[in-house]
Each structure stands twice: as structure tokens, then as C-alpha cells.
């Protein structure tokens, strides 16, 4: 009853009503900015997912920036802020897929690979690493879309099975089976590449 009386009092007083409304908006905005700040904690995970989908680290960096910009623009559309992490990963995956589509990465071979290992000192080992990485990237891109998404989210993004299932909107039980098939396909392809070289 007391609560109802307070509500009525606020409703009847326009100054009080506008004050309460302003406070609610402020609170909502603050919560959103807090949620966005919370999303910044996953920047490395997002970057790694982008690295899995893209050709190199430069593309991955640009994509990460794009993903966060999208998240900033659309965070007000998010109803449940507790799901913001999964929402961010979904944005990441969709943005990467758009990037692949736009740049026709399916048809391109990954000639450009700018990853340099500091621990590898000799030029020869650096070259071998580059070559192996290029072969792996091609194998990943050749995977069927369903398997590729699961593989990248797990191996690059290090997401849990539950998170992967939520991002891809599939059953949790489907994730390990797809992952096993993806790994098997990668190994087969890499073996095939090796045999071709011999």
C-alpha cells in the first residue's frame, strides 16, 4: 500500500516524475556502458576468433575493431545484459563470415601470412613455420562451414562447448561430434598435402 502511495505521488508530481525518469535513463545508460566495459575484457578472445577466420593478424585486428564498434552501436538493443558475452561472440562470428564472403577468402589461398615467430631464429625454420601455417589455414577454410565454425571457436577462441552451442544456436551435444569430425578432416587434409609434396 505504501509502495502504491509512493508511485501515485511520483505520478502526480511532474517534476518528481521527470527526475525519476532521468535517473532511470541514466541508470540504464550507466549499465550499458558498464556492460560494454565488461565486453572489453574479451578482446583477446574476439581477436583470436577473428584470427581463425581471417588471413592474418592485420585483418584480425581490423575485424576486432569493427566488432567492438558494432557492439557499441547496438548494445542498447540488447535486452539481457547477462548474455552480452555470447552476443559479442555471435557478432564476431557473423562479422568474420561477412568478411570471408566479401573478400572471397573461400577461393583464395593464404599466400599472405605475416605471422613471425620471435623464438624461431633461423630463416629456414621461419619459412617452414610459414609454410605449415599456410597449409593449416587452407585446410581450415576448406572445411564445411558447420565444422569450420565449431573448430575455430574451440581451437582459436577457446570457447566452452556450452558457449559454442549458444553462439551457433545448436545443441550442446552436437558440438563435440562436429569438433571431432573437423579435427579428423584437418588431419586428413594435412596428410594429403604432405603426400602431394612428396
Amino acid at each position: 500500500m505504501e509502495f502504491q502511495a509512493r508511485i501515485d505521488m511520483i505520478r502526480n508530481d511532474p517534476h518528481l516524475l521527470s527526475f525519476v525518469q532521468d535517473a532511470a535513463v541514466k541508470d540504464k545508460t550507466e549499465k550499458r556502458s558498464e556492460a560494454f566495459e565488461g565486453l572489453m575484457a574479451f578482446q583477446e578472445k574476439v581477436f583470436l576468433i577473428c584470427l581463425g577466420f581471417s588471413r592474418n593478424k592485420t585483418d584480425a585486428q581490423d575485424l576486432t575493431q569493427e566488432i567492438y564498434l558494432k557492439a557499441y552501436r547496438n548494445i542498447r538493443t540488447l535486452k539481457d545484459l547477462s548474455l552480452s558475452k555470447l552476443w559479442l561472440f555471435r557478432i564476431a562470428r557473423n562479422t568474420c563470415l561477412d568478411f570471408i564472403k566479401k573478400h572471397r577468402l573461400d577461393r583464395l589461398s593464404f599466400l599472405e601470412s605475416s605471422i613471425e615467430l620471435k623464438e624461431v631464429r633461423t630463416a629456414e625454420s621461419q619459412m617452414i613455420f610459414q609454410e605449415q601455417l599456410r597449409a593449416l589455414k587452407i585446410c581450415i577454410q576448406r572445411l564445411p562451414k558447420k565444422l569450420r565454425d565449431v573448430f575455430i571457436l574451440r581451437e582459436y577462441g577457446e570457447l566452452s562447448y556450452h558457449e559454442i552451442a549458444e553462439v551457433l544456436k545448436i545443441k550442446e551435444g552436437t558440438v563435440p561430434s562436429r569438433l571431432t569430425r573437423a579435427r579428423q578432416a584437418i588431419m586428413n587434409q594435412m596428410k594429403g598435402e604432405k603426400n602431394e609434396k612428396r
Binding site: 583477446e44 581477436f47 583470436l48 584470427l51 593478424k57 584480425a60 585486428q61 576486432t64 605471422i115 613471425e116 615467430l117 620471435k118 613455420f129 605449415q132 601455417l133 593449416l136 581451437e155 582459436y156
Partner: peptide
């Protein structure tokens, strides 16, 4: 191979 790639890319990121 993936770990190496990730490590190197994260350093520059």
C-alpha cells in the same frame, strides 16, 4: 602450430 600462431599474433595485438 595454432598455439604458436596465436601466441605470435597476440603479442602484436
Amino acid at each position: 602450430l595454432i598455439q604458436k600462431e596465436k601466441k605470435a599474433a597476440l603479442q602484436s595485438f
